[in-house]
Design a protein around this nucleic acid. Sequence first.
DNA 1: ATATTTTTTGACTATATGGTCAAGTATTGT
DNA 2: ACAATACTTGACCATATAGTCAAAAAATAT
Lengths: 232, 232
Amino acid sequence: MVKYCSDLTDRSSFIWKKYTVSPEPIPFRKISKRSQNQKIILKAAEKVFAEAGFAGATTQLIADVAGLPKANVHYYFKTKEELYRRVVYNIFDTWMEAASAFDTALGPKEALSRYIDMKMDLARSHPYGSKVWAAEIMHGAPIIQDYLEGQLLDWSKDRGQHIERWIKNGEMDPIDPAHLLYLIWSTTQHYADFGHQIETLNGGRPFSDAQWKAAKRSVKTIILKGVGLTPD
Amino acid sequence: MVKYCSDLTDRSSFIWKKYTVSPEPIPFRKISKRSQNQKIILKAAEKVFAEAGFAGATTQLIADVAGLPKANVHYYFKTKEELYRRVVYNIFDTWMEAASAFDTALGPKEALSRYIDMKMDLARSHPYGSKVWAAEIMHGAPIIQDYLEGQLLDWSKDRGQHIERWIKNGEMDPIDPAHLLYLIWSTTQHYADFGHQIETLNGGRPFSDAQWKAAKRSVKTIILKGVGLTPD
DNA sequence: ATATTTTTTGACTATATGGTCAAGTATTGT
DNA sequence: ACAATACTTGACCATATAGTCAAAAAATAT
């Protein structure tokens, strides 16, 4: 699967190779230190951006969470905005990779089922990224607008056409594909973005493995039946 | 329907009456000016908080949007946090009022159908409030936690019990009520919170009346069929 | 060994912003 | 008319924070 915008680390090593005269092997010790620290900072930033918002996130707090002095954060990421960009790009990449789980070669039941599973897994494994994404969209997608108009639109159109084909073939009930996609996105991401509310209504306790399993099951059941498919 | 936390305006006029000796009629000119300005400020604040987040919202910008000098905003609302509180309380009130549309005296089909309609209407009429709510929850509900644990939990439990009764009576398919509620909340609110993304995928144009109608229809169709009911 | 590059970090600065204040204006009560 | 109260607003201040910098330490190349 193609990585669209992240992996600047690898790219910078590539640039380094390109513009350096030496044909020697990549000094991976340095590269590794760079990418290692960047990874730590990005992870901390994702958490802080998710919990405090872009404006509320201070580089000092990000540094603290990363366990580094603030100046060090600015050494690896020139500005807060650049750091934020990278976080947003990363989650978009992750999601686009997962989007391949919507495999139209399979029938509608399997394709939708696997896609929902994948999105639920991501909601559980990447809750901070999901929240950062939600905030980015809510604020008008100042950073990610190009990707919405490009890759996301392309992907949606493509999957929409497949859904329409399934409908024409009588493999599922007629439904506007766009609304079906929105319903899947919203429902699955809700378990990340509104995790706090769900936890509160769950007696203040986070979901157990069994509860996550039940959640996936419930979501799949309603959606599949909702479009005329028979869940297992 | 009871108002839970807003209407400080009315309450302050009540206090005024209480502690003033005069038995004269309420000087509604002043009160009206107060509540009028507060309303303007609250509306501006809702928009700015939604678009910029709590930390990103400046009192100066709120004042500009409201068309007032900043000091005037602080005259009516001591602190930014107090203003934010009021905005959050207002949307919670609005939603709790709408929650009565989930009328369990009706059958499951009518109750769910009307509730979804109501939530979709609110997503359209109160998109800023919805976004502020989403951000509040994503940041751990620092302001509204009490209400989650109180009224929202109570309401959810109550409606959950009714849903379970319907299931026991064979009026709808067995489904965990909590997940059904989450699915309804997430799907409907998505049209507000991710309105920008939806608009982008809609060719950059906001939904027309017809598209909103279609959206409501699609959502209701999938959810009702998803729980074994037959949408009209 | 020594030069060179990369990384670390405390100290510093410029700026933005929440909130205050006092002086003035409008409104209302008597 | 006049006193009292409510509202308006420009100017101001204290603080927080993104970003800089220079000096040193560490790693790497030759």
